[in-house]
Design a protein around this nucleic acid. Structure first.
Lengths: 341, 341
DNA sequence: CTGTTAGCGCTTTCAG
DNA sequence: CTGAAAGCGCTAACAG
């Protein structure tokens, strides 16, 4: 019965070899004969030594096999979002294959300092709510890959949000339409509201603004005007925010006959509420979503939306991090023509 | 422009104080005057030293502020399950409050050895698919809290699954019923099947068996016989497995008029398929679920099920771990009488 | 192929 | 309140 945990040094003593030999047996098989190695490993197992202490390895080697996934918002929120959780799925699958571990990090944390010294790198999914984290990432010496937003000089994974939004809007809009937009995180407000003259935030780095640009380009082409009081800001892609916006837009007068939504979750909530109110979709109200989640396909009428593969994004992000790819990757998307337009 | 990262020693040199002083300034405010401390902190900020290296602290102090959440299965699967992700939500909320970080660990990993040396403890949610992990947890010197299953001598969070299953079954069953059960992980098989004479696994530690016991006790009381060919095994609470079981049970002859399901997800899938086939619920088929997810309440007819608060479980688990509570906690549940019975 | 040794960066006695 | 010094447990030169 060992009182205290065995160290590599103890083991070396017991087996009558040097510490380097034990270390090599575990870490560098090429440094000693197969026979010797196997014998050592067996002895170690026998005396209950399960290998070099990881905490010490982290300090010594400077790597931990831990990758931090920085989410846009609190873990609590992100984990229940179907798009985010599919992304996490992709990341975890790819990391798994490489024997890496996943540390979830909230985007509304104060700082990355808590973990930056020991993680092997960061995947950042969406612009963190706390922008300070962006600064920290951009000066970090550890590898960083961003997804659905950009940091200058760092690799990223994106789709062409402007073009995707343009295409789906272009399919939905007709001259003379009365259009509303349900946007995500357009201004700095914790609640659902119209943007009016509020200053738009993160104009260049945020996907929401790329999408807005795409919508407006399509509107322009179709000679449809969209005033800023017709653009809603939702702080998150969440049902409760969506319900509120939906109620506002459906009871506004004149009621829009097209609503372009920046996520499927909010589009579906609008759809449900419209149907409950007896509004015919798409005859009286056309709706487009964004993301292409399963539920959007199952809905009746099925949602017209932009499909992007979140799982693919996750895998690509992890691979880019581990293989130190420096490019800005642009993934394909596809417009799904459903029944809501 | 510093070529290499500053160490505590460098900083001590630069500021003309000892390393202990710098260390204390960051870690033990009581060890030096407030004025001195603030001056040091300010100087550090100025020269770009953001505090002691965490990797070194982990080795030295033996704590990391990282808690591993060991899931029953692969991260990929668990993160899309509404019950599991709600639990994760609870855990992350509670950890957050205490400044702890969350490492997600797959239950089908080979071993805990990769992280055991540096994490501060383990929360284990459901019996890991790889039982070796259970052995590792049971001998671990790091704190462990189990949820929805038990390890002898370790604290745990559970509901009374036997009683919950009994109550919901007792409400659903009537003498003369033809009953089927959709169970979870009852035998060792990767696919949906009836259990027949296959050896039942994990009989004492698994919640599925507690639930089965409860169902059978209720059946017994109502003088309803349930043969083993009427008990299905599903490897996971997942829609695809459920669809297959649903198809089998609904096309079997004689068709059961009651199906007791060990999760809402599989109950809902059965419900949908039954309705599609024109089977009247509850007139021709009664269904019970387990968990009490939102979707079960929204369904029409709404599902009769056992409600338990996964978020509460997560919070309690994290608190138990951090406060070193050693008890086996039993949380309340509530039967929700829906329209499917 | 093996053994010796100098740190990785920090915390914490302990003596001043 | 400060400074010196001994490790935490390991890895990777380097010399044999």
């Amino acid at each position: 019965m060992n009182k205290t945990k065995l160290t590599l040094k103890d083991v070396a003593h017991q087996l009558g070899v040097s510490t380097a030999t034990i270390s090599n047996a575990f870490n560098r098989p090429d440094q000693l004969s197969k026979a010797k190695r196997e014998e050592i490993l067996e002895q170690c197992k026998k005396i209950g030594y399960s290998g070099p202490n990881k905490a010490a390895q982290i300090l010594r080697k400077g790597t931990s096999n831990i990758v931090a996934l920085v989410l846009a918002d609190s873990i609590s929120y992100m984990v229940s979002d179907p798009v985010a959780s599919t992304f996490i799925k992709g990341v975890s699958t790819a990391l798994r294959e490489q024997g890496k571990h996943l540390l979830l990090y909230a985007g509304d944390s104060d700082s990355l300092l808590d973990v930056v010294d020991f993680v092997d790198g960061f995947i950042c999914y969406g612009q963190p709510r706390n922008v300070k984290l962006v600064d920290e990432l951009s000066v970090s010496v550890k590898p960083v890959v961003t997804v659905d937003f950009d940091i200058e000089g760092k690799p990223s994974i994106n789709i062409d949000n402007e073009e995707a939004a343009y295409q789906v809007a272009q399919h939905a809009l007709q001259k003379g339409d009365n259009v509303a937009i349900f946007g995500l995180r357009l201004i700095d407000s914790p609640s659902t509201c119209r943007i009016y003259d509020n200053p738009i935030i993160g104009v260049d780095s945020s996907i929401s603004h790329r999408r807005l640009d795409g919508y407006l380009r399509a509107a322009d082409e179709k000679q449809v005007a969209i005033s800023r009081e017709r653009i809603w800001h939702l702080p998150e892609s969440e049902r409760s925010f969506a319900r509120q916006a939906a109620k506002e837009v459906l009871t506004s007068s004149p009621r829009p006959n097209v609503v372009l939504c920046m996520s499927d979750i909010i589009a579906l909530e609008l759809l449900h509420m419209a149907l409950e109110m007896g509004i015919k979709v798409p005859e009286e109200l056309r709706i487009t979503g964004f993301d292409g989640i399963e539920e959007a396909e199952r809905a009746r009428p099925s949602l017209t939306t932009v499909c992007q593969s979140s799982i693919e994004k996750g895998i690509k992000a992890a691979d880019a991090l581990l293989e130190q790819i420096q490019d800005k990757t642009v993934l394909p998307f596809e417009v799904r023509y459903g029944e809501t337009v």
